[in-house]
Amino acid sequence: MMAVEQDRRARNVRLASGDAFSRRDPFVIGDQLSFPLDMFSVPHHYKGDVKEIMIPHGLVIDRIQKLAKDIRHDYADTTIHLLCVLKGGSAYFQDLITALRRFHDHADHSYVPFTFDFIKVKSYKGVSSTGSVQITGGDLAALEGKNVLVVEDIIDTGLTMESLLPVLEARGANSVRVTSLLEKRTELSSGFRGHYVGFSIPDKFVVGYCLDFNEFFRDMDHICVISDRGIERFTEETRG
């Protein structure tokens, strides 16, 4: 209940540009909610490497379809410039634009519904924040006058988004908002909240659906909690 109330208090999100926007509440995954591994298909090569399924793939897709509907409703007759944060955000981005296209295929629009680009963002070195954000890829000069919607996989501490958004606003974007598939409830949070968030999740290390641990697990459909064995195994794999 406390996590739900925290999310409700954070509904009104104000960006540095002064864009006030009432955020839509995410679906809250309870601290103890999980799905048994033997009830779903998990790749054999990850057997023993995940502890539980937090969000099955089908639920992920259904939720994304609702997010696409909310986004299209709120932006009305406006072209959205989707800015996907790689690599983690790529699966969410692909399924989001698939859902958006379904709306556009059955509508008579006289404007371009969306455009998109890709960036990579780094604001940490090791486990410590560098205090600045490094952006590679994408044409930031082309953001001027556009309504930018950043597409992210997970908002953890929120520090990356807090660093990124002012940079995008400084490029002359008309508005900058954030959609994230996941938003973690953690004591390390800076308080940043996304505008369109799929799920509010417990403070657990999740993998799958393009979320990785040392580049592994991106090929798994479900969003799962990594096991101690998985951490140990793929730490050793990385070491060679």
Results as ranks from 00 to 15, higher is better:
63 R>I: 00
123 S>P: 03
130 T>W: 06
223 I>D: 08
24 R>H: 13
209 Y>C: 02
53 I>H: 08
120 K>F: 02
166 P>L: 04
202 P>E: 04
156 D>Q: 06
72 R>Y: 08
219 D>H: 07
110 S>P: 00
66 K>Y: 09
78 T>N: 07
21 F>Y: 13
70 D>L: 07
41 S>D: 15
239 R>C: 08
224 C>E: 04
144 E>P: 01
30 G>M: 13
162 E>H: 02
167 V>I: 06
81 H>I: 01
233 R>I: 02
162 E>V: 01
7 D>S: 12
186 T>W: 07
225 V>D: 06
214 N>K: 15
238 T>S: 13
9 R>Q: 15
156 D>Y: 04
54 M>L: 15
236 E>H: 10
211 L>I: 02
96 L>I: 04
194 G>I: 01
227 S>G: 06
38 D>S: 13
216 F>K: 13
83 L>M: 09
184 K>S: 01
30 G>Q: 15
165 L>S: 00
72 R>Q: 09
148 V>Y: 03
182 L>K: 08
174 N>C: 07
189 S>C: 05
234 F>A: 03
166 P>V: 01
66 K>V: 13
80 I>T: 03
61 I>Y: 04
66 K>L: 15
129 S>C: 10
34 S>T: 13
200 S>N: 09
110 S>L: 05
193 R>C: 11
170 A>V: 00
95 D>L: 07
149 L>T: 03
162 E>N: 13
98 T>E: 14
38 D>T: 05
229 R>Q: 14
60 V>E: 09
139 D>H: 11
114 F>I: 06
86 L>V: 05
165 L>M: 13
73 H>C: 11
10 A>D: 14
135 I>A: 11
206 V>D: 08
125 K>A: 14
96 L>E: 10
205 F>I: 02
94 Q>K: 11
174 N>H: 12
131 G>H: 09
227 S>L: 07
110 S>I: 01
32 Q>V: 12
218 R>V: 01
26 P>C: 09
200 S>V: 00
118 F>M: 09
50 V>I: 15
157 T>H: 06
88 G>H: 02
203 D>H: 06
195 H>M: 07
133 V>E: 06
177 R>T: 01
119 I>W: 09
200 S>H: 03
160 T>Q: 03
85 V>C: 11
216 F>C: 07
171 R>A: 13
206 V>Y: 02
105 D>H: 10
13 V>T: 11
114 F>N: 08
231 I>E: 02
3 A>V: 14
102 R>P: 00
152 E>L: 02
161 M>P: 02
107 A>S: 14
163 S>V: 00
186 T>M: 02
144 E>D: 10
97 I>F: 04
160 T>D: 03
22 S>Y: 12
75 Y>R: 05
156 D>C: 05
19 D>Y: 09
193 R>Q: 12
